[in-house]
Amino acid sequence: MTRFGVVLIAEDCSRNEWAARCRRAEALGYDVIAVPDHLNLLAPFPTALLAAEVTERALIGTYVLNAAFHRPALLARDVVTLNRLMDGRLELGLGTGYVRAEFEAAGLPFGAGTRTRTLERLVAELDRLLEHKRPPLMIGGHGDRVLSLAARNAEIVSFTGAPFRPEYGRTALVDAGTLLARVAHVRAAAGARSSQPELNVLSKATVLTRDRRAGVRSLRRYAPDLTTEQLLEVPTIFAGTPAQIAEQIRRDRERYGFTYVTVMDSAMEDFGKVIEHLR
């Protein structure tokens, strides 16, 4: 069984609007409702708690907390409190952060090595502070160190498939072969763990169309250097009819081992039609 999550964006959102969107996500069949951690959005923990209050079944996740924004002891307290008030429905997602302007606004260093070391320290401290009280941990990223950390320590490894590309000044999707190599890296780094991590993939966009080629071409901004054929193959965007996308997800599960798919807020309604074909 594949699980499905959606990252909901809370920006200038009223309580009633947020509650309605969370209920809608659950009604569409999403297993996880996740909140991001960016300075221009409402804070993740209050929005996550409200999501839990207005839903019944879905887990509530963070996709993902920026490790640099959170001190270990304070985050440990907040995680325990939040998970208790949610009756154990929290899925804790962590990452390095990637928006330089947010680091500058917070007065934090942005170097890649610094951000990765911060995440490594945070994960180690949370394991020490929370011991058996830690909820399921997801770590998301693309680089060797972050994925190795996830493979060794997390219950869920999330593949963004989109490293920062200096030539574009932003992240961009890699091709299917590169992502397969990332999966192989995680499997090797996980080694002989008694319980292998669940593999998640973050999809950037979904286009419902009868013309798959035209659909992926409309998403070229996410991967400017990939050909149409390569775009048709990557598991990080979806284009086609709901039935075609459902079949792609089945193939991706066999090829990559992805048993958990997360989509962005803008795709929630369209991808909900795909979920209907996979239940």
Rank of each mutant, 00 (worst) to 15 (best):
A223H: 03
A223C: 09
A223L: 05
A223T: 08
P224I: 03
P224C: 09
P224N: 10
D225W: 01
D225Y: 00
D225K: 04
T227D: 10
T227S: 15
T227C: 05
T228D: 15
T228P: 11
T228F: 04
E229N: 12
L231T: 08
L231E: 08
L231V: 09
L232V: 09
L232T: 11
E233Q: 14
E233W: 01
V234P: 11
P235E: 09
P235T: 05
P235W: 01
P235V: 00
T236D: 08
T236L: 09
T236S: 14
T236I: 05
I237C: 06
F238H: 14
F238S: 14
A239I: 07
A239Q: 04
G240L: 04
T241R: 03
T241L: 08
T241N: 09
P242Q: 08
A243I: 02
Q244C: 10
Q244N: 07
Q244D: 15
Q244T: 13
Q244P: 05
I245D: 06
I245L: 05
I245M: 04
I245G: 09
A246D: 08
A246I: 08
A246V: 10
E247P: 00
I249M: 14
R250C: 07
R251M: 14
R251F: 11
R251Y: 11
D252A: 14
D252T: 03
R253F: 06
R253Q: 14
R253T: 13
E254Q: 12
E254A: 14
E254K: 03
R255C: 11
R255V: 15
Y256P: 08
Y256M: 08
Y256D: 09
G257T: 10
G257L: 06
G257Y: 03
T259F: 00
T259V: 09
